[in-house]
Design a protein around this nucleic acid. Structure first.
Lengths: 251, 251
DNA sequence: AATACTAAAATTGTTAACAATTGACAGTTG
DNA sequence: CAACTGTCAATTGTTAACAATTTTAGTATT
């Protein structure tokens, strides 16, 4: 019986035991005392969510895999409570789905998901631009410009898909920060991980991402000019180009 | 010592014991078996969240009050776990804030919050309109028209502020439903309770809400016509008028 | 009166155990 | 073979208790 169970277990690579994979990484990640200031202590749930999120980004945990509380709590050496909280956090970010049966499944992001993510993103970033134009400080603008400079230099030197995605989203992080609109920031925080996944997987398939990197200068310029009508145009174009670029990789 | 504590306790009406207020309502709300199909069984956390959300809407629990797990679990007759989950749910909806110290405080919604909610709402509903125009079925349109008919009739007969708010949001619920855009629906579900609170409190202060009710017919018509450019214009105007109307009540 | 310190109470974070639900599997029936 | 049923293991939901953190109250000092 155990042999049969094992055979079935190995018949689907996507069913490889998630907890075993995580056990490879779990060298005291969760049980150590961080030695940081108590008021900045990071909760176990946050640590677990951060770990799982990264594991999903790296492909260590694949779409369709189920995240089970009990095995995870064993390999992480913590109780199930914080794991539950972490999984609720990941659900909010769209990285997992928790259907009616309560099981937590890593999300498969389809082309339809992509369409939703980018249409929602456009709706958000239009509002963000309106607020950023109003609220961006010279420091914000300086930070955005710095990121663009790093982008341009990196593209010239040769840049990996991951670094491109990191810089791209970091730029938009600062844009949202500059908007001083807490709710926008919150929705962005929830949407960002899905966008990252799309960028990571789709940049591999599309060599034009480097061209897209350099377009961020337009955004900085139009914010600096505080020109709202132009700003909306620029962000729409920016995201539409990104949308089209990634969309092509689904064909 | 106990007498002094009691004196201090009564010195701030907003500090009246939240759990005592909830005890008035908690006649088996949470511990009863619903007798519904098992597959449709509502979790305790959902029940608690629903109850607390309504209590906040009714003003039974006031902005600034702290929701404490232990007293709540005692009066509700359940453990703290589901209460924690419920409070996390309410945080997501912006009804409570959970600062760094972990305490859960019912949110005070300021004019700035109002500004954020409505700007975000506009960004979302533009996207929703684009999708609804594409995806609305005759049944969706029929449902929206039915709600508008009820609105018009109710305004003519005389309608309470609460009923107006209920109908208003129900109309937009259907709009989002018709969009077939899951992420939009999810963000709307999180934003909706805050909008409801603004409508409830501000409708009292502004007698023009009845005029606003009747403007929903325009939305139905433009969706029916599948005219996207016009649709964006209509929803912007609709929300701008609503924004202006409520904004005035802050002066 | 204002500030600082300390201890205790209050509150939240986490854990382990029990309860309830879901899924997998074997056997039976048509 | 497909569909159904029953059993049991797996998994999640909830609870009570312990651990850690934050707040409050009381006292001493300036």
């Amino acid at each position: 019986m155990k042999a049969r169970s094992s055979d079935k277990h190995l018949s689907k690579p996507s069913d490889m035991n998630t907890a075993l994979k995580i056990a490879e990484d779990s060298d005291g990640l969760f049980s150590d005392d961080d030695g940081i200031l108590p008021s900045l202590k990071v909760s176990l749930a946050d640590k677990v969510a951060d770990y799982l999120r990264e594991a999903i980004f790296r492909g260590k945990i694949a779409p369709g895999e189920q995240l089970r509380e009990v095995p995870l709590s064993k390999v992480m050496g913590i109780s199930r409570g914080p794991i539950r909280d972490a999984m609720n956090r990941l659900e909010r970010e769209g990285l997992v789905t928790i259907p009616r049966n309560g099981r937590t499944i890593v999300a498969r992001l389809t082309q339809e998901d992509f369409d939703e993510v980018y249409s929602l993103r456009l709706g958000l970033e239009r509002v963000a631009m309106q607020y950023t134009i109003r609220n961006a400080t010279p420091a914000d603008l300086g930070e955005m410009q710095q990121i663009v400079n790093v982008m341009v230099e990196a593209v010239n030197r040769g840049i990996s898909e991951k670094d491109a995605a990191d810089l791209d989203l970091h730029f938009h992080d600062v844009l949202y920060q500059a908007s001083c609109h807490k709710r926008l920031q919150s929705v962005w925080a929830d949407l960002r991980p899905q966008i990252y996944i799309f960028l990571l997987s789709r940049n591999v398939a599309d060599s034009d991402f480097r061209i897209q990197m350099t377009r961020h200068q337009e955004i900085v310029d139009v914010i600096r000019a505080r020109d709202e009508a132009q700003a909306l145009q620029v962000i729409e174009t920016h995201l539409q180009v990104a949308y089209n670029r990634i969309s092509k990789t689904y064909k």
